[in-house]
């Protein structure tokens, strides 16, 4: 479903993500854990391009979301001037490609053929980012309900604006979703009158109103009062049981263990270890994973 290919993310001189790759399969529930500042939220936000990766590519269902990264396409690299220069000085093609990759040798101007090759890759594979985002629901730590709209308007805005549904259809669907979470009586109130737990559940169904293929959760319970964490986790668990593909960044280890098919442990901008929960929580291999788990469990 989602392929993250060798992404780097720099904020100024700070490298937040360092050569991260991973694959989210259809129907899979992946939970990302790790200490704060490890890059897990940035990684999630890169998946729907709220942050643009500095290098690397993101793919959704075989479609490219980011600009094409030449380092991931040997055929493109072979058209570059740098390649032409190095070819002959080295024993074989693979050697040249490796040298270019390792030493980051590609420049801004690598000739017309190279530009055309890169464009061609994008033309063949790229999908409009807004179209891609419609298929990826995102839930934020701070809910981010639209303050200037009622709950119902929050749910219907995107489907109606994007002409996916008529206003009536959208409202009907929205009411179904609200009924499901037991908040149908809040349809016409403004978000400022709701509790944190209610807000987050509405934020989740707002994403569901778009019928996404995958849901991204960015620390969905971190901003909640403890007594409201449960209701939000219950809803996420329900979705998981229905088979929704999910990527969840969270600090709730018990929940992670229960819901995840696979856990990614991130530290220092890299995926340090990944394994099914039973394995990772009971017998972590990497010392950094061990250290982290010993603190949080």
């Amino acid at each position: 479903m989602i392929s993250v290919k060798n992404i780097y993310k720099d904020f100024g001189t700070l490298r937040v993500l360092n050569a991260v790759s991973c694959e989210i399969k259809d129907g899979e529930k992946v939970v990302i854990i790790g200490p704060s500042g490890s890059g897990k939220s940035t990684m999630l936000r890169c998946m729907n391009l709220l942050e643009s990766p500095t290098y690397g590519e993101i793919w959704l269902d075989g479609k490219l979301l980011t600009p094409a990264d030449p380092y991931l396409h040997p055929a493109v690299m072979q058209t570059s001037k740098t390649y032409a220069k190095l070819y002959g000085k080295m024993p074989d093609e693979a050697e040249v490609i490796r040298a270019i990759k390792e030493k980051d040798l590609l420049k801004k101007h690598e000739g017309r053929a190279y530009q055309a090759a890169l464009k061609e890759v994008e033309k063949q594979n790229q999908i409009d980012i807004n179209l891609a985002r419609q298929q990826m629901g995102m839930v934020f730590q701070h809910f981010n309900l639209f303050n200037n709209m009622t709950v119902l308007q929050n749910l219907t805005l995107a489907p109606v604006q994007l002409k996916l549904k008529s206003k009536e259809e959208a409202e009907q669907h929205a009411m179904q979703l609200l009924t499901r979470i037991g908040l149908q009586d809040k349809a016409n109130v403004y978000p400022s009158t709701l509790s944190g737990g209610q807000k987050q559940r509405i934020a989740i169904v707002r994403a569901l109103a778009m019928n996404p293929k995958v849901m991204l959760f960015d620390e969905p319970t971190s901003a909640l009062d403890p007594e409201m964490v449960g209701e939000v986790l219950d809803l996420i668990r329900e979705l998981a049981d229905e088979g929704m593909t999910m990527v969840i960044v969270t600090h709730e280890m018990g929940f992670a263990r229960e819901v995840a098919d696979r856990i990614l442990f991130m530290d220092g901008g890299q995926i340090v270890e990944e394994a099914p929960p039973a394995e990772l929580f009971t017998s972590p291999q990497n010392p950094r994973t061990k250290e982290f788990l010993s603190k949080v469990l």
């Binding site: 729907n48 709220l50 807004n130 179209l131 891609a132 985002r133 419609q134 990826m136 629901g137 995102m138 934020f140 701070h142 981010n144 309900l145 639209f146 303050n147 805005l157 995107a158 604006q161 994007l162 934020a203 707002r206 994403a207 778009m210």
Partner: peptide
């Protein structure tokens, strides 16, 4: 966050 939520829903 308001902008991000809008963009994340696929709104231009």
């Amino acid at each position: 966050g308001q902008t991000e939520a809008g963009r994340a829903l696929g709104l231009p």
